[in-house]
Design a protein around this nucleic acid. Structure first.
Length: 688
DNA sequence: AGTTGTCACCTTTAGACAGCATGTC
DNA sequence: CTAAAGGTGACAACT
């Protein structure tokens, strides 16, 4: 293997020293191949290699090489948490004067500073949003690194990724692109699309052994032949054996409920192996003490945990940290962890290779399995990793082995062709001035991965979308209207913008609930689902019907959808009327993490509604602003003055208000009372 | 009368980006 | 490709 010293030909000695300080002495074979294929040149690269086989370092070296030559780099990732992780990792280069920045929806370096940074880490949506909001520094890029480029295949978010790449290429004609991907069969297509050298390899620093389990036996492929070896009679015994050997286990379940109950079950086995996790268990209850949090906390004490999108962020972080430290022995997760932050374990167990998906219970994709299996084996800690799929019978095991162990992951297919995505991006292209004619649009789309993969052009669809956007008053003759520009910058679906505008044009006044419902009628809102026991919602609907501006007949096709909108609006209504979080969660059948996410989305949409109302000089603008603030803090209007103060949230504000303290002045004058209510140290903090 | 056990039937089902301006209990 | 876990309620067998 190539020694890192060889890199000093291309990079300074200091860079090599920093690598050595990080314990990197030699390059992995794929990294070496990248060097051979032009890492230190201007060539584009597509690196399609397994997780944890050194992709990030390849990108890092290329970025440092670029920065030394005076260039500027953008590194895009699919998740906020990943952006944070990379930002931390790259910050080590500040030692040699490289400036690192981060920009995501929830965390951002100061704007003027981003322009000065050598490397900026963003989510792909945020990068697109920055383009829409005219961040000029994005026109001075020399290197773009796209992490997890195989997500172009994602039906929801893949289109943005390829449009972003095409946009940045157009704005920076000499832009070098390095794309990092999981191992996919058509990496060559992506490479050809990007005019890039392809580095493709199955090499891993820690070998991965894949098995299919049925009671008593494990199946595996060896030299192309299926072999059966003796095994434990149950998965629980297998897990216990791993723990006895000093390893940790990551279990993937198909539903939250299963993940939670298996974590509880397995905690009966992990408790023998755990030392003292009481601090982690406490941390889990710090922000929320609801049913789920208590269950999680109990598991943690006994050395297990579950992990899904219903957890609060702080809880996720605490669990991930404790697992990394080896204090949580078995982690039971839904697919959150498959593509999320890096959390390897010696053994990965797939309790179910099938998952319910819009009406059917179907096997997961091979690529999804590979993603999860890839989490097995901690580099430097485990000699090897093992991934085990659980089945019930030998017959089933044989089929599963054929499909997942011998099978190839699915090809990456562009999803840009759908109307929603084309509408969303066409408006942005016109708004940003990237396209100002029909030909421009076609030209642009001809540079996308969709165009590379498909013979036909999107001519017909684009014509229709242009007409649509014109009808909605967002563009006129391929030029954006101020309304269109606003919608594009707000990063909402044009349809959402249109729904807002329409409703505002029809009504001078709207109730709080109607405003919340309006937001829920938008395609950008995530809706709660209706369950059998949700009959109370229709009763509530009877009571509140007067407040709404839209309610379809009970017999109409959209009634079910309407009920979901209404339920979601009610949930938000409870939130801004200071209903306790745990009570809301129970009433609507959601977890604390869900509530936060829904509120966050609602806040963004209420903000958008407000901006559009302002744009139209509509008198509901001030009401929307109030609701935006109320959503942000989860309070009634009377608390808004208090909640603006630092260190005062919905609960403290309510206590103060009920004691007659209604703003900062009252607080200063009645300091004693306040100290009694919320503690003197907190009052001190607020006043300072 | 209250508790426990059994069985059939019913219900439910993963994830998470974006604006804006800075910090909850 | 078309399940399965967990909850619920009815009912019987216990203490």
């Amino acid at each position: 293997m190539m020694n890192v010293d060889a890199l000093s030909d291309h990079l300074s000695k200091y860079v090599v020293d920093i690598l050595k300080k990080r314990g990197i002495e030699r390059l992995y074979p794929p990294q070496e191949e990248a060097v051979r294929k032009g890492l230190f040149s201007n060539k584009n690269l597509v690196v399609a290699i397994p997780t944890a086989s050194g992709k990030t370092l390849i990108a890092e070296l290329a970025m440092i090489y670029e920065v030394i030559r005076g260039g500027k780099c953008l590194y895009t990732v699919p998740l906020r948490a990943l952006a944070g992780e990379k930002f931390e990792e790259f910050s080590k280069w500040e030692e040699i004067g490289v400036k690192i920045g981060i920009s995501t929806g929830d965390y951002e370096s100061r704007d003027e500073w981003l322009g000065e940074c050598d490397i900026v880490v963003t989510t792909s949506e945020k990068a697109d949003s920055l383009l829409r909001n005219e961040a000029s520094w994005l026109r001075n890029l020399s290197l773009l690194v796209v992490d997890e480029i195989h997500l172009i295949d994602s039906a929801k978010r893949g289109a943005t990724l390829e449009v972003l790449i095409a946009k940045l290429k157009k704005l920076n004609p000499n832009l070098r692109i390095i794309a990092l991907s999981a191992t996919i069969p058509n990496a060559d297509e992506i490479a050809e699309w990007l005019n890039a050298e392809l580095i493709k390899s199955e090499w891993r620093p820690t070998p991965l052994y894949e098995y299919v389990f049925y009671p008593g036996r494990l199946l595996k492929f060896e030299n192309g032949f299926l072999r059966e070896v003796k095994a434990e009679s149950s998965i629980e015994r297998l897990i216990v054996r791993t723990l006895e050997e000093g390893g940790q286990v990551l279990v993937f379940e198909s539903t939250r409920r299963n993940a939670e109950s298996y974590a509880v079950k397995i905690s009966g086995y992990t408790k023998e192996f755990v030392e003292d996790n009481s601090d982690v268990a406490e941390k889990v209850l710090e922000e929320n003490e609801g049913e789920m949090s208590r269950k999680l906390s109990e598991c943690v004490k006994l050395g297990s945990a579950f992990h899904h999108a219903g957890l609060l962020n702080s809880q996720r972080v605490a669990i991930e940290k404790a697992f990394r430290e080896g204090r949580i022995k078995v982690l039971v997760a839904t697919p959150t962890l498959a593509a999320g932050v890096n959390l390897p374990a010696r053994r990965v167990i797939l309790k179910s290779y099938r998952r319910y998906d819009s009406g059917a219970y179907a096997p997961i994709m091979v690529s999804e399995y590979k993603q999860m299996a890839g989490r097995a084996g901690r580099p430097g800690l485990d000699e090897y990793g093992e991934a085990i799929i659980v089945t019930k019978t030998r017959d089933e095991a044989l089929k599963v082995a054929e499909r997942y162990l011998a099978g190839e992951p699915e090809k990456v297919i562009s999803k840009l062709g759908s109307e929603t995505h084309l509408r969303f991006h066409t408006l942005s292209l016109i708004s940003e001035g990237i396209a100002s004619s029909f030909e421009d649009l076609l030209d642009f789309y001809s540079t996308t991965f969709f165009a590379y993969q498909n013979e036909f052009t999107l001519e017909w669809e684009i014509r229709r979308i242009v007409l649509q956007l014109e009808k909605w008053g967002m563009i006129v003759e391929y030029a954006p209207t101020s309304f269109g520009k606003l919608v594009s910058k707000l990063y909402i679906d044009p349809l959402s913008g249109f729904i807002f505008k329409e409703e505002l044009s029809k009504f001078d006044e709207l109730s709080d609930l109607a405003m919340l419902h309006l937001i829920c009628r938008t395609p950008d809102m995530e809706l709660l689902s209706i369950r059998k026991a949700d009959g109370w919602i229709e009763n509530e609907l009877e009571n509140l019907r007067e407040e709404l501006t839209y309610y379809p007949s009970i017999y109409s096709a959209e009634y079910d959808f309407f009920l979901r909108e209404f339920k979601t609006a009610l949930c938000l209504y409870d939130w801004i009327n200071e209903r306790d979080e745990d009570i809301i969660c129970e009433k609507y059948g959601i977890a604390p993490g869900d509530l936060r996410r829904i509120v966050e989305t609602a806040e963004w949409l209420m903000h958008s509604l407000r901006r559009i109302a302002e744009h139209l000089s509509h008198n509901l603008a001030s009401k929307a602003l109030k609701l935006e603030m109320r959503l942000k803090y989860g309070v009634k209007e009377e608390l808004l003055d208090l909640v603006k103060l630092k260190n005062v949230g919905r609960k403290r504000a309510r206590k103060l208000y009920n004691a007659g303290i209604r703003n900062l002045e009252d607080l200063i004058q009645n300091r004693k009372i306040a100290e009694k209510l919320i503690g003197s140290r907190i009052v001190e903090k607020i006043l300072s």
